[in-house]
Amino acid sequence: MQELFVDIYAKGLLGTARTTPFGEGMVIWTVHGHMFAAYTTGGEGLSLRIGSDLMAQMLVGQKRAVTSAYLKGTGWVLFPWNTPPTELRDWIGRSYRLVLSDRNAGAP
């Protein structure tokens, strides 16, 4: 159910694309070709870019998120699927805007 929520919300953001470059079980959401969200079908949650390792550590310390298994130490965390939809939506939007602003600023 949450996977569908993510897909519907992310699809509505300008310039986004849903891709499966690692196979159908791994969904990557990008904005203008840059990843801002990822999940594994049937997995434990949604990985989002938070922007700083400090913010990521804070969210993990508060038990609102866990360290992303594949993106450790890079400002990414995994929000479990039991995260309230409104909070998940807010973090998706923040991740999207962060990646979009990095892209516009010329970051790799």
Score class of each variant (00 low, 15 high):
R49D: 10
E87Y: 00
H32Y: 06
G43N: 02
K72L: 13
R94P: 03
D90T: 15
T40L: 06
G23Y: 01
S47W: 01
A38H: 09
H34K: 15
T74P: 10
I92F: 04
D90W: 05
K72M: 15
G93T: 03
A69W: 05
A37Y: 05
G42P: 09
G51P: 04
P84K: 08
L46Y: 06
L48G: 00
G42I: 07
G75C: 09
W76N: 01
F36M: 05
S52C: 06
V60Q: 10
W91V: 01
I28G: 04
F36V: 01
S95M: 09
V77I: 12
W91N: 01
A37V: 05
I92Q: 03
E24L: 12
R49W: 13
G73E: 00
Q62C: 04
R64T: 10
A56M: 04
G42L: 06
K63I: 07
A65K: 12
V77Y: 04
G45R: 06
P85C: 11
R49C: 12
G93E: 12
L88Y: 02
W81D: 10
G51L: 03
H32S: 05
T41F: 03
S52Y: 14
F22H: 07
M26E: 11
S52I: 03
G23N: 03
Q57L: 09
M26G: 02
G73D: 02
M26P: 02
L78N: 11
S68T: 07
M35G: 01
T67K: 14
G42S: 09
E24W: 10
T30H: 04
G43W: 08
R64G: 00
K72N: 13
K72R: 15
I28V: 15
L59S: 06
G61R: 03
R89E: 13
K63P: 03
K63A: 14
G73I: 05
G51I: 02
G25A: 12
